[in-house]
């Protein structure tokens, strides 16, 4: 149970980082923390006590293995996270070119 709560704690740290920080780069890092908290949680969901990696090998029988499906799904989620992060970093660099700052309180041309 405690590991799930730690995941939640990590999630909250990321959320705090996204909501509260002013620097664009820190916001992106916060987003990464959120993603990893969710991924970690998803992997833990499939874990069994003393479970082994679900890999078929020659002349071996695995009796107690962890659930392989969450691992496959998390791999997909990581790839998606990579794409989003790369895109946002590219946008952040372009924003820095245009505005000359990473401070979101100064990047406010859109209002209303």
């Amino acid at each position: 149970m405690s590991e799930y709560l730690l995941c939640l704690f990590l999630f909250c740290i990321g959320l705090y980082c996204v909501l509260r920080k002013r620097n664009i780069i820190k916001i992106i890092i916060g987003l990464g923390i959120i993603e990893y908290a969710v991924n970690l949680f998803f992997v833990l969901v499939g874990y069994r006590i003393h479970g082994r990696a679900p890999i078929l090998a020659k002349e071996q029988k695995i009796l107690n293995m962890v659930d392989p499906l969450p691992q496959a799904l998390v791999l997909t989620a990581i790839v998606i996270g990579l794409a989003v992060t790369a895109l946002i970093v590219a946008i952040a660099i372009r924003i820095y070119e245009k505005y000359g700052t990473f401070d979101i309180t100064k990047i406010r041309r859109l209002r209303g």
Partner: peptide, 22 residues
């Protein structure tokens, strides 16, 4: 400049939403 700002805002909020969904 405005487009990048809007896109950044949209991307951050959208990704947080996606994390909730996941």
């Amino acid at each position: 400049a405005e487009e990048l700002e809007a896109s950044f805002k949209y991307a951050i909020m959208g990704s947080v939403a996606s994390s909730f969904i996941l």
